[in-house]
Nucleic acid binder design. Structure first.
Length: 1001
RNA sequence: GCCCCGGUGGCGGAACUGGUAGACGCGCAGGACUUAAAAUCCUGUUUCCCGCAACGGAAGUACGGGUUCGAUUCCCGUCUGGGGCACCA
């Protein structure tokens, strides 16, 4: 027993040598985890001749709630694949770290007065302890946290590079802002219109005449990170800005105070410049079609036209409002449409409630009504506006003039039109657009039909194939052909332009919060500003952003004791005099800043010269396998793809897509359990009553009533009780005190002191709980802690069971019950090596062909399953293998040894232990994945299913190389087939080699 | 509302490219071993019908249609559960 010396060395692992016969998972796992750590088994070098493979898990946020069994699902999958690749001879990078900045830690600080750095540290330590329990092969020497200055120094540095860059649409890449300045000096901006303001036009001469401040303002319209203004959820009562999910129906989640939208100075990333490349890049990566579709829908590229309508106002509208156009004439309304072919079906226009044209076109008599409506909209979140089925809107009192027909078209405003998309105004064509149709119906706006019979008057028809009528010069054309003709005509007449539009908006990149990366930006000019100190959030016009010198990075987040918001919606940093006196930006970066490039840092985590050396990023390149949930489909994945493209454009890395392959893990849902509390009217409640699920379900029926009455009489020992009125309410009960659906009554009584005296109405002597699949959450008492399962069954069992539950991609409810099966499998494996009484039972004999066949079939199935991330069938393949080897009573070392290697990625501890027991010197982590000898797997014949008219009726064993004629003869000669043919002759015999045979009658 | 994904025995799931539906595991039932228990092993387990039995019949992959020699798989519609919708990460 070679392993014994480890126990002598280490007091913690001493147990009697005789017990080695048993599968003592706890000592085995502790022993190997410690040894692997001591030996640095998971250290990964950047300097090797081996091919590389990079396996990455999505960056975890270390939440205070700790891990439940749903969290490690993806980590186990990636761990298995990383270990598998290692056995296949790859140098595998499999790192882990923490996305440590974020709102929950700050909220916790506000609620409990504990500094986010402190609670984050506690959470991380707990997280780490839980991860270590499960035996992952992370290279912890590469760990970092986004909240460490040595990390966010580089987040700040990349932000500065974005600030100092612009996107050259001609070269379709980011370039230094200096290049742009040279261009502007020599040729003005005619060839490079500002993405931030398309109306901005100037010559080289004009540029030279601008003062410093004006130039800065202009450059801000080009920079890839820039400052602008945007709406936030402002809660006056809390004095703070709220996240979308902290706002419910226009009120704050905490306290229920009203929330309105408020414009604040914000930083943005000009991700829209990358829209096309983010779209094209999807063709080069291996993501699921669903994922690609979600991303391209989010980017939302569309082709259409901008059409400008003259506006006719019935009365002079108030306000010193910018008038459309350059001639100072009547205001104009520009809409974006993807369907210019429906131009003659326009029955009304809708502008977003935020649209500035409302300042200039609303006549006095409509003003009150419109203002009232705008006030209502202000209280509505964007999400509510989109999700609402209710139709709201308001006529503005103004009319647009149709450029061809000259008709006056009423202009409405409604929340279903969003300011951020297109021009914030639409032309509504009710016969072709469902939302327009419903709106017209609701407000009794007459509908023009331009598609004849294709429109039935009951619902809109969004077809592009109908033939147009009532459409002037488009009459008689098929709609999809009319699109181009209409655009050409619009351009010809100067009424519109062809336009590519994106649904995607620039990414808001600042938060009015403390616990995030500070911006390395100071504001110059605000000290002399007329706006008092308190108003920094509003200013910006009068001051100029100055990037800090890169040598001064990191700009460290100051320590604070009070976490409350600053004045006027500013973040807590505005309360720090040492901060504001340096005129530093008081916003901080959002959660996704640090996670947009972390995958690069793992390649070179300790570099303090650069964010990641080019040598390191060239060696590791793309993440080969990225595992995480679909909830990040659009946010994190698009941002990190953009940052990667930017760093590539500027030459700091050599690849422009971060992830080669993405696998989405499903969510593990909780399986909640319910008890049914019986409240009797007029009975004291110190003796809570609970009815078993079956009884509770019958409560409405007379038999149920009778049953409950009887039970109550027994409980109170009073046969005279007549049950009059009672209610039954389901209550969540901790799933950990329920075995399957049977409640552990004693544990339940201890669970809550008020249940100590509880009485139960049982069915067949048991208390059966109700069940429901819900999100796994502490609040629903349905969380299961991996620590408990590891303690009870070991990490290897836990890992395999998580995988055995189902495909990684699928969401499924957790049920602890089945874990026994996997545990039995590992014990059964153990018994191939050890007998309780005889000890070691493996033998050096040569395996038989039958044994080799089982082995190779198992390897083949397990390997193929692992390759396609079908880990559940991988586990199943190994179970079948062990069952078959057991049936063969095979204990041959040659077979067992190779079996262990394929098991290693799934259950590394037991594999390493048995590997060493077999007498191997090196670690199984670096063993060679066993090759398959195909000759043992070749079959010469197959049991073909024989179907008559598609229904399987019998089986015939037929040689695999049989010809069609041979098969027909054999099949038609069969008695059963003859019986089914019933004398008729078959129409044809379909023979699919190695699949099946179908006789068509 | 819009976009994406799913729905198969009592339960988790398998069936990889349209070719034997229910692998593997849980649970349940019966049995063996044991003084007993644990552990282990064996048998059965989609539903219904017929039957002494069967390698007898029928239905069956959310529901309703369709394509096909053949559909869990492809198409259309409906119902239903989950994820996302830009400040949760």
């Amino acid at each position: 027993m070679e392993s014994l010396h480890y126990f002598k060395e280490n007091e913690a692992f001493n147990f009697f040598p005789t017990r080695i016969m048993e599968y003592n998972f706890t000592s085995i796992e502790k022993k190997w985890q410690q040894l692997w750590t001591e030996r640095g088994s998971y250290r990964v070098s950047n300097d090797t001749a081996k091919p590389k493979f990079y396996v990455l898990d999505m960056f975890p946020y270390p939440s205070g709630a700790g891990l439940h069994v749903g969290h490690p699902l993806g980590y186990i999958a990636s761990d298995i694949f990383a270990r598998y690749k290692r056995l296949k001879g790859f140098n595998v990078l499999h790192p882990m770290g923490y996305d440590a900045f974020g709102l929950p830690a700050e909220q916790y600080a506000i609620d409990h007065g504990i500094h986010p750095a402190v609670s984050t540290e506690t959470n991380i330590n707990n997280f780490r302890r839980q991860l270590d329990n499960i035996g992952f092969c992370f290279d912890w020497s590469r760990e970092f946290r986004t909240s460490e200055p040595s990390y966010y120094k580089w987040t700040q540095w990349i932000f500065l590079q974005l600030y100092k860059s612009w996107y050259d649409r001609k070269q379709t890449k980011a370039r230094p802002i200096g290049d742009l300045m040279t261009i502007l000096e020599t040729e003005g901006n005619a060839a490079h219109p500002a993405p931030g303001d398309s109306r901005l036009r100037f010559t080289a001469l004009e540029w030279k005449g601008f003062d410093e401040k004006r130039r800065e303002e202009i450059l801000m319209n080009y920079r890839l990170s820039y400052c602008g203004y945007g709406d936030v959820n402002w809660c006056e009562a809390l004095g703070t800005v709220l996240a979308n999910d902290e706002v419910i129906n226009g009120f704050s989640e905490r306290g229920g105070h009203p929330v309105i939208k408020k414009k604040l100075r914000q930083w943005y990333l000009r991700i829209t410049d990358y829209a096309d490349r983010l779209l094209e890049g999807l063709e080069k990566v291996d993501f699921s079609d669903a994922m690609k579709e979600m991303q391209s829908n989010w980017i939302g590229k569309s082709f259409g036209a901008e059409v400008t309508f003259e506006v006719h106002t019935t009365a002079a509208a108030g306000g010193d409002v910018p008038r459309g156009g350059t001639d100072g004439g009547a205001p104009r309304l520009t809409v974006y449409t993807t369907r210019p072919d429906t131009l003659f079906g326009v029955d009304f226009m809708v502008v977003a409630p935020e649209h500035e044209i409302l300042n200039s076109i609303v006549p006095a008599e409509q003003k009150e009504t419109v203002d009232e409506y705008l006030a209502y909209v202000k209280s509505r979140s964007e999400r509510e506006r989109m999700a609402e089925k209710k139709i709201t809107g308001c006529f503005t009192g103004a009319y647009a003039i149709h450029p061809f027909s000259g008709l006056h078209i009423p202009i409405w405003t409604s929340e279903y039109v969003l300011a951020g998309y297109g021009t914030g105004a639409i032309m509504a064509v009710p016969c072709g657009d469902e939302r327009d149709f419903k709106f017209a119906q609701y407000f009794n706006i007459p509908i023009t039909n331009i598609i004849g019979d294709a429109f039935n008057g009951l619902e809109a028809n969004p077809t592009k194939d109908a033939i147009l009528e009532n459409s002037d010069f488009l009459d008689g054309l098929v709609m999809k052909d009319a699109i181009v003709i209409a655009i050409n005509k619009l351009e010809e007449k100067g009424i519109g332009v062809r336009k590519v539009n994106y649904r995607m908006r620039d990414a808001a990149f600042s938060r009015q919060r403390y616990w995030g990366e500070p911006f390395p930006i100071t504001w110059q000019g605000d000290e002399q500003s007329e706006v008092p100190e308190r108003g920094r959030a509003q200013l910006g016009q009068s001051s100029v952003a100055i990037p800090m010198d890169e040598k001064e990075l990191p700009l460290e987040l100051p320590h604070i004791e009070k976490y409350g918001p600053g004045p006027e919606g500013e973040g807590p940093l505005a309360n720090v005099p040492a901060w504001t006196s340096r005129h530093l930006e008081t916003n901080t970066m959002p959660g996704y800043a640090g996670s947009s490039w972390y995958f690069l840092r793992y390649m070179d985590p300790h570099n303090d010269e650069t964010f990641c050396s080019r040598a390191a990023s060239d060696y590791w390149g793309q993440v080969d396998l990225y595992i995480g949930g679909t909830e990040h489909a659009v946010g994190h994945l698009l941002y990190s793809r953009m940052w990667t493209k930017f760093l590539f454009d500027r030459g700091w890395i050599g690849h422009d897509e971060p992830y080669k392959r993405l696998v989405n893990q499903g969510m593990i849902q909780g399986s909640s359990r319910f008890v049914y509390r019986l409240e009797l009217k007029g009975k004291p409640s110190e003796m809570p009553l609970f009815a078993s699920a079956g009884i509770a379900a019958m409560a409405g029926a007379p038999e149920g009533h009778e049953l409950i009455t009887q039970a109550i009489r027994n409980i109170f020992n009073d046969p005279s009780i007549e049950l009059e009125d009672y209610t039954i309410s389901p209550l969540h009960v901790d799933v950990n005190i329920v075995d399957g659906v049977e409640l552990d009554i004693e544990a339940f009584k201890k669970w809550r002191s008020e249940y100590a005296q509880a009485q139960f109405i049982l069915e067949e002597g048991k208390y059966i709980c109700g069940t429901e699949v819900e999100k796994m959450s502490k609040r629903l008492y349905n969380t299961v802690n991996p620590d408990d399962l590891v303690n009870k069954y070991g990490a290897d069992t836990f890992r395999m069971y998580e995988m055995f539950l189902g495909p990684v991609e699928a969401s499924k409810p957790w049920d602890t019950k089945g874990i026994e099966g996997v545990h039995r499998f590992l014990r059964k494996l153990w018994r191939l090596f050890f007998d309780e009484t005889k000890g070691k039972i493996w033998t050096p004999e040569k395996p038989t062909d039958a044994e080799l066949k089982v082995l190779y079939r198992t390897i083949k199935k397990a390997e193929e399953a692992t390759e396609r991330f079908s880990f559940n069938t991988g586990v199943s393949a190994m179970m079948i293998g062990v069952n078959e080897i057991t049936d063969l009573q095979c204990h041959k070392k040659e077979i067992l040894e190779r079996l262990l290697v394929i098991l290693t990625p799934y259950a590394p501890h037991i594999s390493e232990e048995l590997w060493q027991q077999l007498g191997n010197q090196g670690s199984i982590l670096d063993a060679d994945y066993p090759a398959i000898e195909e000759k043992y797997l070749i079959e010469s014949s197959k049991n073909y299913p024989i179907a008559i008219n598609g229904k399987t009726r019998t089986e015939l064993n037929i040689a695999l190389d049989a010809t069609q004629q041979q098969v027909e003869d054999l099949v038609l000669a069969d008695d059963l087939v003859k019986k089914w043919l019933d004398g008729k002759s078959p129409k044809k015999v379909i023979y699919v080699k190695n699949k099946m045979i179908n006789v068509v009658v």
